[in-house]
């Protein structure tokens, strides 16, 4: 029973992660990963700075949404 429950929980988690990915919720984590992998010496942006920068850049670089 508990293993079934765990499977359901795991499935739900996987779905939530996928859905978050579609919404772009994991953008900061990916940025950190990139930052680490690229070996920058400067510290990465904080989470708040990253999201601020992200939406501010969209101001001058809008993305279309379809009909």
């Amino acid at each position: 029973m508990s293993s079934g429950l765990a499977a359901v929980a795991k499935g739900f988690q996987g779905f939530a992660r996928y859905f978050g990915g579609v919404l772009g919720a994991d953008a900061y984590a990916k940025y950190l990963e990139h930052h680490r992998a690229a070996g920058h010496s400067a510290p990465p942006l904080s989470e708040r700075e990253f999201w601020r920068d992200r939406t501010d850049r969209q101001d001058s670089n809008p993305q279309g949404r379809c009909c």
Binding site: G21, A27, K30, Y31, L32, E33, H34, A38, R57
Partner: peptide, 14 residues
């Protein structure tokens, strides 16, 4: 890490 980010194909599909 911002505009050009490798994205999992299934996530990108969505």
């Amino acid at each position: 890490g911002k505009d050009y980010v490798r994205t999992d194909r299934n996530v990108l599909f969505g």
